[in-house]
Simulated assay, not measured.
Amino acid sequence: MVKRADSLLREMEKYLPKMYKSIMTIYTELGGEREEQVIREQYELIDGISVDFGIMQKTRRAYVIKSNFVWDDIGSFAALSRFIGNYKGNSVNGNIFLEQSENCCVFGKDKLIIGFGIKDLVVVDAGDVMLIMDKNKDQEIKSLVNTLKEKESLEKYL
């Protein structure tokens, strides 16, 4: 297993050198006092490119193996909702109570989240931030995050 991870890291160093440098910086701080701060700093520096585009489509060191399984790229709340519990026609995770609600994705943390008479919403309790949005706009979340980054007073929540 270590050999495979080393191979992936070598390919990342070759094709995504900035990402590789950030990941190595994070790695050196894991478990330390500055771990969280360094993760936040380095995350800001990492380009928003997936490993499949940044490495897998370029490398000559990967193999494709024919297989038969269900695949879903969990890159949206809609996709993620297919993998969590179903409660009265809603996708839920956490301490959730919904009544007269339909087609919602609700991700709880510590608090009890109660939904009454709601429809087509995504609700995410992330501790110090609560996201509530129209379920049909989940592909626009990156644009929302970019807008929030421009607001200095909100940056600490990202």
Results as ranks from 00 to 15, higher is better:
Tyr15Gly: 04
Tyr15Leu: 06
Tyr15His: 08
Leu16Pro: 05
Leu16Glu: 08
Pro17Asp: 02
Met19Phe: 08
Lys21Ser: 15
Lys21Arg: 14
Lys21Asn: 14
Ser22Tyr: 04
Ile23Tyr: 12
Ile23Gln: 08
Met24Cys: 10
Met24Arg: 11
Thr25Asp: 12
Ile26Gln: 02
Ile26Leu: 03
Thr28Met: 12
Thr28Glu: 15
Glu29Tyr: 09
Glu29Lys: 11
Gly31Arg: 02
Gly31Lys: 01
Glu35Ile: 01
Glu36Asp: 12
Val38Pro: 02
Glu41Gly: 05
Glu41Val: 06
Tyr43Ile: 14
Tyr43Ser: 15
Ile46Phe: 04
Gly48Asn: 15
Gly48Ser: 14
Val51Trp: 09
Phe53Gly: 12
Phe53Ile: 11
Phe53Lys: 14
Gly54Asp: 00
Ile55Gln: 01
Met56Trp: 15
Lys58Val: 02
Thr59Val: 02
Arg61Ile: 06
Ala62His: 09
Ala62Gln: 06
Ala62Met: 06
Tyr63Met: 12
Val64Phe: 12
Ile65Met: 08
Ser67Lys: 08
Ser67Leu: 06
Ser67Phe: 07
Phe69Met: 09
Val70Asp: 15
Val70Ser: 13
Asp72Trp: 05
Asp73Arg: 13
Gly75Ala: 04
Gly75Ile: 04
Ser76Trp: 00
Ser76Glu: 00
Ser76Tyr: 01
Phe77Asn: 00
Phe77Lys: 03
Ala78Ile: 09
Ala79Pro: 00
Ala79Cys: 00
Leu80Val: 05
Ser81Glu: 01
Arg82Ala: 09
Arg82Gly: 08
Arg82Leu: 10
Phe83Ile: 03
Ile84Val: 07
Gly85Ile: 01
Gly85Met: 01
Gly85Asn: 07
Gly85Val: 02
Asn90Lys: 00
Ser91Ala: 06
Val92Lys: 00
Asn95Trp: 05
Asn95Gly: 03
Ile96Leu: 01
Leu98Glu: 01
Ser101Gln: 05
Glu102Gly: 11
Asn103Gln: 13
Cys105His: 14
Cys105Pro: 12
Val106Tyr: 03
Val106Met: 05
Val106Lys: 03
Phe107Thr: 08
Gly108Lys: 03
Gly108Thr: 05
Gly108Asp: 04
Lys109Asn: 15
Asp110Gln: 11
Asp110Tyr: 11
Lys111Arg: 15
Lys111Tyr: 13
Leu112Glu: 14
Ile113Leu: 14
Ile113Pro: 08
Gly117Phe: 10
Ile118Cys: 15
Ile118Gly: 13
Lys119Leu: 14
Asp120Ala: 10
Asp120Ile: 08
Leu121Asp: 13
Val122Ser: 09
Val124Leu: 12
Val124Asn: 09
Val124Lys: 09
Asp125Val: 06
Gly127Ala: 07
